[in-house]
Amino acid sequence: MKILLAEDDSKLSKMLVYLLKKEMHSVDAVDNGNDAIEYIKLTDYDVVLLDWMMPQKSGIDVCKYIRSHDNNCGILLLTAKDTLDDKILGLDSGADDYIVKPFEILELLARIRAIKRRQPKAFVSDIIDLNNGLSINKTTFTAAYKNSDLSLTKREYQLLELLIENKNITMPRAQIIDYIWNTEDSISSNALDALIKLLRKKLTDAGSSNIIKTIHGIGYRIED
């Protein structure tokens, strides 16, 4: 799923991004309500996670903005406010669900899945096809070339998904490393080189050769 996290607590945000990516979700993160609205204008998210008390615009303000623009993405409010009146206000503002801090990550993930089940028509297609026959399925975390499944590791799939979602855009090496390994501090650029090599070999063996382009001194991209 494509998820937007709007949370101004940097430690909590970083932890949630790491855990959500481990669950194979694609995550954007912002720390204030204005940026959340700008991201929502540009991207079709499956689920938006909103902290209630953010700078500039609150989670409630962002929630009302989303619904006033006929956006049916799933909305989950994250907040320390736990009175009945607060919960009613959040839900009446357009949120699909409400979780009180501190919360367990397993409960958060379950609530995200429940939102998706309740709103199947609100989500963008989870299958992305390229013109050369390569495709990914973001629901099953699988890839195929001309209808033949590719056997990819978790990180190989994450790399392929990132490049396909940003096709025709050069992804900087540092951004790729941060997306795939995130908080693992000891990762070197050699790890990315090795991962690119492994993914390229599997694509070549399947018949889709030379699709990942090296942009020297910058990073990589997939052209379509």
Rank of each mutant, 00 (worst) to 15 (best):
K2R: 11
K2S: 10
L5F: 06
D8A: 07
D8Y: 15
K11H: 13
L12V: 15
L12R: 11
V17C: 14
L19T: 04
K22V: 00
V27D: 08
A29L: 03
D35F: 06
D35I: 03
D35K: 13
K41H: 06
D44A: 09
D46P: 01
L50N: 10
M53R: 06
Q56A: 11
G59M: 05
D61C: 08
C63N: 07
K64W: 02
R67A: 05
S68I: 04
D70L: 11
D70A: 13
N71Q: 05
N72W: 03
C73P: 05
L76S: 01
L77N: 04
T79H: 08
A80K: 08
D82Y: 05
D82Q: 08
L84R: 08
L84H: 12
G90C: 05
L91P: 09
K101C: 02
P102V: 12
F103I: 00
I112S: 07
I112E: 04
R117N: 10
Q119N: 13
S125E: 14
S125I: 03
N131Q: 14
G133M: 10
L134A: 03
K138D: 03
T140Q: 14
A144F: 01
A144P: 00
A144Q: 14
Y145A: 13
Y145W: 05
N147E: 12
L152A: 03
R155T: 07
Y157G: 00
Q158E: 10
L159H: 09
E161K: 04
I164L: 11
I164T: 05
P172S: 11
Q175N: 09
D178A: 11
D178H: 08
W181H: 08
S188E: 14
S189Q: 13
L192W: 09
L199M: 08
D205P: 00
A206C: 10
A206K: 07
S208C: 15
I211Q: 13
Y220C: 02
R221N: 09
R221T: 03
